[in-house]
Amino acid sequence: MELPHSNIISYHVTSPFFIIKFTGPRSLNSFTKDDYLYLGQLLHLADKDDSVYFTILQSCGTFFSSGANFQGIAKQAKNSNDPELSKWLKNFVATNLYVTDSFARHSKVLIACLNGPAIGMSAAIVGLCDIVYANTEKVYLRFPFASLGLITEGGTSITLPKKLGNNIAYQKLMFNEIFTHADLKDKVINKTYYIEDTEEFNKTILNELNEKIKTLYLPSCLKMKKMLQSNLKDEIVKLNSLEVNDALQFWIDGEPIRRFDQLENRNRKVKL
């Protein structure tokens, strides 16, 4: 399979681990549409590789990922002559649906090594992972949908209420408040390493995993994932489709782009 290229996502396979690494610290690991598509394709690659049992997301620098590169989306939208409907089907619906589905139906154990905050779609991906490790208590997840004129995406309509609780999911989503380490501990974050250095943090996790799997029969792990996953998978798959199709109208109405422009103008004024 010919994979599209991404400058800031790389991968390597050290069986039984398929390691995906975000390598764009200068942009706080924010992703373009193509980066997300590449990520989805890597998951499919890991899925098909029989030697792989764990798919691990690592990042670098101080941010896990600041989410979609809004500037790119806005530019693309303005330069496109497509009718609004096809523009947003192409730029939003298709990508989002594909990436979320790749995670929701992934057959290997998904582990996120959270080295810092995650925002938006990237935070949603953390919510889709089976196991999450944190480097310090400074990590957080933020879903600024209500501020950006969007709605829940990446399965968050179901993953957040299920994993963190119904009432707190409402409070944090509706008012664009952050999920702190304290909110996530024991519910999404399985273990906190208290290691500041990201490289050391990533390495420590891999060493530990290597140690842990020595005595395990790995096909058991995959079968158990399949069993556990069945509780949530169907709902995520359903919600994913509903989320993007409802969000489509928000993009067509133009509120997200309007809000992004306002944000840009404010930033420009601050700089002047």
């Binding site: 950006l148 509706m174 664009n176 709902e235 409802d246």
Partner: peptide, 21 residues
């Protein structure tokens, strides 16, 4: 003041009205 009302109601629609809950 800073939030977009339709986003808030749109999210409730997803979280509640489409849920098995």
């Amino acid at each position: 003041k800073k939030l977009y009302g339709p986003s808030i109601l749109g999210m409730k629609k997803m979280i509640f009205h489409e849920s098995t809950y």
